[in-house]
């Protein structure tokens, strides 16, 4: 099984990835093989099965009080930024 190339392109754009034109075919094939493997799940009758979307132990939400407290030092956080200016992250211009 192969996944359509247009589909590979669409999924890549959703994931903010760029797939090399030359590698399109490889991706169609590999993703197809993995999806085919995942299709084994169709052998099961899951009509009555409940979903377990909450994860393995937490079946309830965990909240905390919204308290004011000291946070990280700004410079320490910005230290890792690829580009910064006067205490802010620098990003490319997004408006003309």
């Amino acid at each position: 099984m192969k996944i359509e190339q247009s589909q590979v392109k669409y999924v890549a754009s959703l994931a903010r990835l760029r797939i090399d034109e030359a590698e399109q075919d490889k991706w169609s094939e590999q993703m197809g093989a993995i999806i085919e493997f995942a299709d084994q799940l169709n052998e099961l009758d899951l009509h009555d099965a409940e979903s377990n979307e909450q994860g393995s132990t937490s079946l309830y939400n965990v909240f905390r009080e919204d308290e004011r407290k000291e946070s990280f030092d700004r410079d320490k956080i910005l230290f890792n930024a690829p580009e910064q200016y006067e205490g802010c992250y620098v990003v490319p211009k997004i408006v003309e």
């Binding site: 590979v8 994931a15 995942a38 799940l41 099961l44 377990n52």
Partner: peptide, 26 residues
């Protein structure tokens, strides 16, 4: 990332992600 995005994308969510979560419960 590609597989995960595919499994969560509209039209495939029920067929893959939701089903996998049901199997997880079982």
């Amino acid at each position: 990332i590609m597989l995960g995005t595919y499994a969560l994308s509209s039209g495939y969510y029920d067929a893959y992600y939701k089903k996998a979560q049901q199997v997880r419960g079982l």
